[in-house]
Design a binder for these strands. Structure first.
Lengths: 152, 152
DNA sequence: CACAGTTGGAGAATGATTCTCCTTTACGAA
DNA sequence: TTCGTAAAGGAGAATCATTCTCCAACTGTG
């Protein structure tokens, strides 16, 4: 069975290949940033990644971390945990319901609980966790953005 | 069948009662803010709410909108769409998986696709939408935060 | 109607993110 | 291996979202 260490190396190797394939220069900083994210068990913020990377290369700039995160997101090497961070989004609908989020225009449409069957967990979820509620987020393209991409 | 208009009035009436019950003063601004959120089909940001409310009361301050949003969230009158906005959170794990989010400390734990049964939509989802993927977000308290709240 | 405690307004302060501008580096070609 | 060019990095200013501070105005009670 592979250890966590070799698994990280596998991902870093794949990362190098994907950079080459995408025409992205393979810089020291880029590899450190990617490695910091892959090695993290949590889902780190740019600031945390910066703190981690700075331990090995104190001269790195926070702007470089941000720039590369966006580069990696565009290249599909990373994923954002939330499709709508950046600004607080609110709702007054307190009934159980789910969301359909357009990844392009960030519009959010509600889906009633009755529109999907209840979720069943195969096993007891993580010991010690108290689950209060769950929400399903469907990500995709809304009709307008589907059209817009076709035309372009 | 109730029209959208009367439904909004119903919610505003309930809002007034809940304010009274929670000891919150019923100000002109509060009602406008709540009404703007309830009336919105989308899931508005504070800035959008401000723009809307300002049309009726140009003297309102953006800080007031923010303050009241937080007041309403604490009173349970509103809900945040995303439990982890505020800072970009990233992951390199591109496999289908889900998230367990602690609402108190914002820690995110991955849940493998195999840990829950697939979701079935009862009907064809919204015409015209292209669904690319879905993620289930379980919200609750992690073991550490559960303990912390017991002790307090 | 007056009082006391909330709440609102304005603008400064803070934190996250992006931009600008100039220097340095990666990497294909010679 | 060296060179030239385009891509990338660093520093700090600029911008955007959000929060705070401080004082004036308002709500709800007596």
């Amino acid at each position: 069975m592979p250890t966590a260490g070799t698994q990280i190396e596998t991902m870093v190797t794949a990362f190098r290949e994907r950079c080459r394939a995408s025409g992205l220069a393979l810089t020291h900083q880029r590899e450190l940033i990617y490695r910091a994210i892959v090695s993290s068990k949590h889902h780190p913020s740019p600031e945390l990644i910066f703190d981690e990377v700075r331990r090995q290369t104190p001269s790195i700039s926070l702007a470089t971390v941000y720039k590369n995160i966006h580069t990696f997101l565009e290249a599909g090497l990373l994923r954002e945990v939330s499709p709508h961070h950046g600004s607080l989004r609110l709702e007054a609908n307190l009934a159980e319901h789910h969301h359909l989020v357009c990844t392009r225009c960030k519009a959010i449409v509600d889906l009633d609980e009755s529109e999907l069957e209840p979720i069943h967990l195969s096993r007891k979820l993580r010991a010690g966790y108290q689950i209060l509620r769950y929400t399903v987020e469907f990500q995709g393209l809304c009709p307008a953005c589907t059209d817009a991409l076709k035309t372009t």
